[in-house]
């Protein structure tokens, strides 16, 4: 999956323009990165990529780049 496609998925879930998602964008400062949308993101990653995020991984998410690193760590690196 390309980085742009992934940003589109994430942006839709957390109700944020994908163009705002840079590596250093602080997720918790985005209004849509709330508890409900985090669950939706967990479900989406599981259903699309069979990636099961651990609660500790979710708790450690700080910036958007952390999400891309998680994808790579779970064997689904993004392409440009």
């Amino acid at each position: 999956m390309t980085r742009l496609e992934f940003k589109t998925i994430v942006g839709k879930i957390i109700e944020t323009d994908p163009a705002r998602l840079a590596a250093d964008t602080e997720l918790r400062k985005l209004g849509g990165f709330d508890s409900l949308n985090i669950l939706t993101l967990m479900i989406e990653l599981d259903e699309r990529f069979e990636i099961r995020l651990e609660p500790e991984e979710v708790a450690a998410l700080k910036v958007y780049g952390d999400l891309e690193r998680l994808m790579a760590a779970h064997g689904a690196p993004l392409t440009d």
């Binding site: 918790r28 709330d34 409900l36 985090i38 967990m42 995020l53 651990e54 979710v58």
Partner: peptide
Amino acid sequence: TDPSGSVRTDEHLAMNGPAIFH
């Protein structure tokens, strides 16, 4: 107050949603 504006005190129920979901 959590980042989404939801408010509680320590005298109320608290849930770690991702952990319970997982």
